[in-house]
Design a protein around this nucleic acid. Structure first.
Lengths: 231, 231
DNA sequence: CGCTATATTTCGGGC
DNA sequence: GCCCGAAGTATAGCG
């Protein structure tokens, strides 16, 4: 990994065209050739970058650029597309290289899966008398998060999201369409369950006769600690 | 901006829980206090990070950690949530600080908004005699990019994408379903307009009676320079 | 390899 | 400020 802090200007052409006026920035060249241009704020997203696989060529400025103070020109060309990032370096304040080796990567644990386990354990949240049929009930287009039976014996399909968006309602709608073709299950009601349901998603769900259920993660954790069943 | 290259391990708790086993990484501390942990590959996304506003506290390791080789402990706490990133530093290979100043930021052009402005200005591309009703026509589930009238007085809803994918057809379908319930508008025809329409999207659109319109960005810019109205 | 769904998404625009 | 959609989205899981 090479770290350069320099006054620079950049131009990107590819999916879009964009340019960066001259300013002092951090340039990171990773082992795979990818390049990041970071400012001293914003977020984890660089101002501009080139994703691997790509090739960095360090060149000399032409006379005009040199006269304008450019000391080097970096051309980063993507290997599979026309994406190209051109960086003009002016004053270089820092330049160092480091051997980092391979990274074992981030180890994370689930949230949506956790919500699913909690709701399965507290299936009564769907309404008194509900019974769990199974989690990850398989269909031709993918598993439904939860399938349950209500007290009258009717089927209930539940789609669980951390954040309930329109996409989730669409997903549940597709499942319901398929499940309702199964004479052993039909009619199947739909329940859209999420920690937070966006207004538009609620409108769409209601419009399609799908019930919305807001899940209180902390309250559900308090009722029954199912963490051990997940891991 | 502070740059540290060090062998380190990290633990994040917040929206999720995750940890990073010990390895050599780049740690970037930005002027706003945010921290990025980068490996020597992957992409522009860090392995782990803390977004601003947050506070970095550098502390001493306890005896047990010190015995294990930890030389410093960084605690990065988000100021508005419980998000917390804890980093244990072992061997430090590099440590430097740099004053970058304020960045003017990225200047980009040529996006969906631009296509929308161009098509609104050249609404005749939908067919001779079409008239613009309005851009961003509101519905309960979000605004339709363009609503127009055809020469017979019929309504036309247009969804614009840079790349026409199935998602866009689904989105337009939802809008059409809602718009067609409005007796003042119905029947509403749909037009799916994009610089490039994927074959699958075209098939789905055609199947649903939605017309496809391929937009020639350069040609549209040539006809009428509306850049000044956008920027 | 392609498609699908998620993300500690981030970012920008409209209201 | 919130809400919502787009992103040069990136990334992981599956078929």
């Amino acid at each position: 990994m090479r770290l350069v802090v320099a006054s620079c200007a950049a131009r990107y052409t590819g999916r879009l065209s964009a340019h960066l006026p001259r300013a002092t920035r951090l340039l990171v060249v990773k082992a795979d050739g990818s390049v990041l241009l970071h400012s001293d704020g914003g977020s984890y997203k660089p101002l501009n970058w080139m994703s691997p696989p790509c090739t960095l060529v360090v060149g000399e400025p032409d006379d005009e650029s040199r006269a304008a103070g450019v000391t080097a020109v970096w051309t980063v060309q993507h290997q599979k597309s026309d994406d190209r990032l051109e960086i003009e370096l002016f004053e270089v304040l820092h330049d160092s290289a480091h051997d980092l080796g391979v990274d074992p990567g981030l180890v994370k644990d689930g949230v949506e899966a956790h919500l699913q386990a909690l709701l399965a354990a507290q299936i009564g949240l769907l309404g008194s008398g509900h019974v769990l049929v199974r989690r990850e009930y398989p269909t031709a287009i993918g598993p439904v998060d939860i399938l349950a039976k209500d007290p009258t014996g009717g089927s209930v399909a539940v789609e669980i999201k951390r954040r309930g968006d329109i996409d989730g309602v669409e997903q549940l709608t597709r499942y319901l369409e398929l499940l309702n073709r199964d004479p052993l299950l039909a009619p199947v009601r739909g329940v859209f369950a999420a920690q937070e349901i966006k207004p538009q998603a609620r409108v769409l769900a209601t419009d399609r006769g799908i019930a919305c259920l807001t899940l209180d993660y902390d309250a559900m954790r308090g009722v029954d600690d199912v963490d051990s069943r997940l891991f």
